[in-house]
C-alpha cells in the first residue's frame, strides 16, 4: 500500500490499514537495531529537527537514535514555550527552523493542538512527539507493536489502561489505536482523573481497578505526575498506590499471561510495585526497544518510503 500521510499528528487520523502498515514497517526495521553496524543509508541527506518544548529523555533520544540509524542528520532543540506577550511565538520559531530546510520537525509541546497548529503553517513534515493531554502517536504505535509482538494480534484483546486518563496523551492515542485495531479498551482511575465523555471514544469505564483488569490480556499503567496535576485531584500517593497501583496481588486478576506495560518513567511503588515492574510479565523495556523501530518507520514513511524494507 501507499502511505499517504505527510504528517503524523495523531492516531486519530490513521486507519487500521495505516497502523498495520506502520507496525509491519517497524518490524522490518527491528533487525537493523540488532546488527553490529546499526546504520542504513535510507535517509542519507535528510535533516530531522527534534523540537522539544517539554523535557523528555526517552522520546527525544529514541527519535534521535531512529534518525541516526537511518543516516539522517538529527538536530535537537530544547525550547521554552512563550506567552502571547513575550518571547518568540511558536509560529516564528517554527518558521525560522523551517527556513533552514529540515525535512521533518519532530515536536513535543505542552499545548494540546500545537502540532496541528504547526502543520497548518509550515511545509515540512511534522511528527507529534506529544502535544499536551491530546496525543502521543509514536508511543501508542510502539505499545501496539509490543502487544502484537507478544500476543500475535491486537484484535479481540482486552486492554486495561489505569491511572490519570484526563491528563494522558498516551491513553488517548492508545484508545484511538487499540479500538481501531479491534481491541477492547477498559479504563479505570481516580474519579478526578477520568474525563467526561471518554466512553464515547469507545472505552469501557470501571469504578474499580480490579474490575478493569479482571481477565485483561494487557494492563497498561499510566504515569502519575502530582506536580502537574495539582493538589486537588488526589489526597496522597500512598492512597493512589493502594487503589490504583498494580502489585503482585491484583495482577493475579488479569489473564495469567497478561502483559504489564508502562510508558515510563515509572514511579516505583506508586503505579507499579517493583516486583511487577521487574517481573516476568513486564514488557516495559520491550516498549522502549520497539520505540526506536516504530520511530524509524515513521521517519521513513512520512518522507515517502513506499514499502517495508
Amino acid at each position: 500500500m501507499n502511505f499517504r500521510h505527510k504528517h503524523i499528528l495523531g492516531i486519530e487520523q490513521l486507519s487500521a490499514d495505516d497502523i498495520r502498515f506502520i507496525l509491519d514497517t517497524a518490524d522490518s526495521f527491528k533487525e537493523i537495531n540488532s546488527r553490529d553496524i546499526k546504520k542504513v543509508p535510507t535517509l542519507r541527506g535528510k535533516t530531522i529537527v527534534n523540537l522539544f518544548f517539554e523535557a523528555s529523555t526517552r522520546t527525544r533520544t529514541s527519535f534521535e537514535i531512529a534518525g541516526k540509524r537511518l543516516s539522517a542528520d538529527t538536530i535537537n532543540i530544547t525550547a521554552s514555550s512563550s506567552s502571547v506577550v513575550k518571547g518568540e511565538t511558536l509560529e516564528d520559531t517554527a518558521k525560522n527552523i523551517e527556513a533552514m530546510k529540515p525535512d521533518i520537525i519532530v515536536m513535543r509541546h505542552a499545548a494540546s493542538g500545537a502540532c496541528h497548529y504547526l502543520a497548518e503553517r509550515v511545509d515540512c513534515s511534522i511528527i507529534n512527539a506529544g502535544d499536551g493531554a491530546h496525543e502521543h502517536p509514536s508511543q501508542a504505535l510502539l505499545d501496539m507493536l509490543t502487544i502484537r509482538q507478544h500476543k500475535g494480534r491486537l484484535e479481540g484483546l482486552k486492554v486495561a489502561i489505569v491511572g490519570d486518563i484526563t491528563h494522558s496523551r498516551v491513553a488517548r492515542s492508545n484508545l484511538y489505536g487499540l479500538t481501531r485495531m479491534g481491541a477492547e479498551v477498559r479504563l479505570a482511575g481516580p474519579g478526578t482523573m477520568v474525563p467526561p465523555g471518554i466512553e464515547r471514544m469507545g472505552a469501557k469505564v470501571f469504578n474499580d481497578m480490579r474490575e478493569a483488569i479482571a481477565g485483561a490480556d494487557v494492563v497498561m499503567m499510566l504515569r502519575i505526575q502530582l506536580e502537574r496535576q495539582g493538589k486537588t485531584l488526589l489526597p496522597t500517593l500512598r492512597e493512589y498506590a493502594k487503589f490504583y497501583g498494580l502489585n503482585t496481588e491484583n495482577l493475579k486478576l488479569a489473564a495469567p499471561d497478561a502483559l504489564v506495560m508502562h510508558p515510563g518513567p515509572v514511579n516505583r511503588g506508586v503505579e507499579l510495585s517493583s516486583y511487577v515492574a521487574d517481573g516476568a510479565q513486564s514488557v516495559i523495556l520491550d516498549q522502549v526497544e520497539n520505540g526506536v523501530a516504530v520511530r524509524m518507520a515513521l521517519l521513513y514513511l512520512v518522507l515517502g518510503g513506499e514499502q517495508a524494507q
Partner: peptide, 13 residues
Amino acid sequence: NEGFVATELGLKG
C-alpha cells in the same frame, strides 16, 4: 467547555 469535545481534544475543561 468541559465535556466530550474537550476530552477528545485533550484541552482542560
